[in-house]
Amino acid sequence: MSGFLHVDFRRCTACFACETACRTAHGGGLRIQLAFVDGLPVPLMCRHCEQSPCAAVCPEHALVWDQDHGVTLLADRCTRCGLCAVACPFGVLFVDPFAQPSVIKCDLCRARRAEGKRPACVLTCPTEAITEEPHHSLRRRRLTTPVFPIAGKPPRPFQGGASRASRKRNDMV
């Protein structure tokens, strides 16, 4: 898979830009949605699991995991039985009995990526809460970012910019 949608819940401001962007890119149907936990937003979309429960339960093998596109639907095999929607642990996959395609889920904006564009939600998120990250950078992030920062230690210091003293000197000039 070329990229992975990394969601940093701490940056999400519940502006709903991703939901409307997704609807604009794909038409109707919820492919990404904000769930709220204790009043705080959690953007949810297909995680493209490698050993995906939805693909495992599909009796027709209509859902397959693909190296480039994640969990992909082979539309002509689908019988719209709905087992995949039941199996999805994140609740981000819906089966529409009438729509085409039948399974409504995030496809990592396959059509946009074919045109060389980034997924709509990634591009539009004002605070970069949703980012598309290659595997190696995610791996590096695991190595470098502490899961539990040491209590009392301030976050990364402010980078760049003049100190108060030097600003004062500039003002004088």
Partner: peptide, 15 residues
């Protein structure tokens, strides 16, 4: 919302 990215950017820099 779109202007909030500059707030988040400041926060990222330790503001």
């Amino acid at each position: 919302p779109v202007a909030f990215r500059w707030v988040q950017e400041a926060k990222d820099r330790g503001a």
